[in-house]
Design a protein around this nucleic acid. Structure first.
Length: 565
DNA sequence: TGTCCTTTGAAGGTT
DNA sequence: AACCTTCAAAGGACA
């Protein structure tokens, strides 16, 4: 992505991962922003839910319940302070602490410490060294010290969220840390157990809907009993790597020394330790099916293995294996947004009753655009590492290999845009946020506005979330829809992360920056424009904020659902 | 049961 | 070079 470390090639563990703590004030401000953003999201979702539930009685009550909430800013401010105090305290105790809502990445950027070459997940000396160098404040217990996972309370231990937990127990960098451990998170406390997750109605810790737990607590009783490693949060659990492992085992193309800490974090989190001694049938030795290995039978296309790298064919998984079993599906590495989504989804889901992924993704898309430059940069960097690692693990793999493995997507109704099509697209119409300019009345115009307001990642980076943004978003009419209006391509994004943050004041946000949804220009959060702009917002920005805000207030939330059709 | 939906980004193919 | 297509995650909705 955009000018990460000046495109710093191999600087894994890049500087941007090491954003140091800011001044308390600034930190708090940031946190406050994030909390506000969350509230914003909450409100948004609340609206969505209300909308989708079609004036159900609960919607009113739910909203009513939300309103009484004290001022989020002040409240969250204090809350945040508490978080930090608690964090500090726990840190002092050598324990683990919860994260503030979104305290910034620095303290989260704890790479998975598991040495990929230590199959038992023991913390390697190098990893410890790395950790301590990177996180001097962190008390990194030795493997021995962490041996006993039974002692730490589940709330503090999570294989998914090492050391620090996100407010909703989703580490911002979870994807990197323990890539996809959501299927096995014995240590991750259910969100309902989280002190900060309260039932909006009762104010007491709520019992989440079963579906809320599913992503993180899909363990079967048997699986629970296998919580094998004491290091819960440090040890990648079975079944969680992202990429398939060649049935013959993982042949690491590089010597240990070639793998730096960042890399090892990826490897350990997504590829190891299952990568090492691989167990046939994609089954971990624990007996739990290995998620990383996508069953070839699922969506296997003949000849796909032809594109496999030689290493893929090096070994035969087993004598009795079917031929398909030899061709594990190697998934694409996740891009930055995917990583973000993976991490944030649970949080979003936990915050609302909205479960539909499509809607969730729209929210995530908005939030993605509202991320600060640094925050997005983190994910871009992670994604870059993911790709790097992936390419190293599967030198011969090509994205093309997976083509056709997924059912052909119905190539939407976008082609000939007849008047009817147009009307259809109107359903998903973008709300007109800007009176005079760049109304996205149509996909085309949407693109047009993109031209003026690059939706490139770099541009997005220039459009972070901040109190201002949050504020505006709260009043901002959101046009969310699950109804396709004809899938638009976003190749305007092919303006790949150039790194040059656009100075445009209009940023694409809203339900989508690209595809079907309109570009929703909105005021750029003061803090997001640039670091230097954190302080006094210019009259220009204020004006922009005001105008947008006014507009947003005048625009009702529009949720177009399929059912509405 | 399988696909769609929805998001952004990456990659590869096509024009 | 620009454009187009597919896939990556996720889970409810739908055929």
């Amino acid at each position: 992505m955009p000018q990460l470390n000046g495109g710093g090639g191999d600087d894994l563990g890049a500087n941007d991962e090491m954003i140091s703590f800011k001044d308390e004030g600034e930190q708090e401000e940031k946190i406050s922003e994030n909390v506000s953003a969350e509230r914003d999201l909450d409100d948004l979702k609340s609206s969505l839910v209300n909308e989708s539930e079609n004036n159900s009685s609960s919607s009113d009550s739910e909203q009513a319940e939300r309103r009484p909430q004290p001022r989020p800013d002040l409240d969250s401010y204090e809350k945040t302070r508490d978080y930090f105090s608690e964090a500090f305290r726990r840190q002092q105790d050598g324990g683990f602490f919860k994260s503030p809502h979104y305290p910034g990445y620095p303290i989260f950027m704890i790479p998975d410490l598991t040495n990929p070459y230590l199959s038992n997940g023991a913390l390697s000396p190098s990893a410890r060294t790395y950790l301590q160098m990177k996180w001097p404040l962190l008390d990194v217990p030795g493997a021995a010290g962490l041996k006993d996972s039974r002692s730490p309370t589940p709330g503090h231990l999570s294989n998914k969220v090492p050391v620090v937990q996100h407010a909703h127990h989703v580490h911002p960098l979870t994807p990197l840390i323990t890539y996809s451990n959501e299927h096995f998170s014995p240590g991750t406390p259910p969100s309902h157990l989280s002190p900060e997750i309260l039932d909006p109605k009762t104010g007491i810790p709520r019992t989440p809907h079963p579906s809320e737990l599913s992503p993180y607590y899909p363990l079967s009783p048997g699986a629970v009993g296998q919580i094998p490693h004491p290091l819960g949060w440090l040890v990648p659990q079975q079944g969680q790597h992202m990429y398939s492992i060649p049935p013959g085992g993982f042949r690491h193309p590089y010597p240990t020394l070639a793998m730096n800490a960042s890399m090892s974090s990826l490897v350990s989190s997504r590829f190891s330790p299952h990568m090492m001694p691989h167990h046939p049938h994609g089954m971990h030795q624990t007996g739990i099916p290995h998620p990383a290995i996508v069953s070839p039978a699922i969506k296997q296309e003949p000849n796909t293995h032809d594109h496999m790298s030689p290493s893929m064919h090096s070994k035969s998984p087993g004598p009795v294996k079917k031929e398909e079993d030899k061709k594990p599906h190697i998934k694409k590495p996740l891009n930055a947004f995917m990583l973000y989504m993976k991490e944030m989804r649970a949080k979003v889901v936990a915050e609302c009753t909205l479960k539909e992924s499509a809607a969730i993704n729209q929210i995530l898309g908005r939030r993605w655009h509202s991320l600060s430059r640094e925050e997005q940069a983190k994910y871009y960097e992670l994604a870059r590492k993911e790709r790097q690692l992936h390419s190293q693990l599967y030198p011969g793999w090509s994205a093309r290999d997976n083509y056709g493995k997924r059912k052909k997507r119905k190539r939407d109704n976008k082609p000939d845009s007849t008047p009817e099509d147009f009307s259809i697209s109107n359903k998903k119409q973008c709300v007109q946020y800007l009176p005079s300019e760049k109304m996205c009345d149509s996909p085309a115009s949407s693109h047009g506005s993109m031209l003026d307001s690059p939706a490139t990642p770099s541009a997005a980076l220039a459009s972070p979330a901040a109190p201002a943004a949050t504020h505006s978003e709260q009043a901002q009419p959101l046009s969310l829809t699950t109804k396709p209006e004809g899938r638009l391509h976003h190749h305007f994004l092919t303006g790949k992360p150039s790194g040059s943050a656009s100075s445009s004041i209009s940023i694409p946000i809203g339900t989508s920056g690209s595809h079907s949804t309109p570009i929703l220009p909105r005021p750029i959060p003061f803090s997001s424009l640039h670091h230097s702009m954190l302080s006094p917002p210019s009259p220009f920005h204020q004006a922009a904020l005001h105008s947008h805000h006014a507009l947003f207030q005048s625009q009702p939330l529009s949720l177009v659902t399929k059912s509405s059709d």
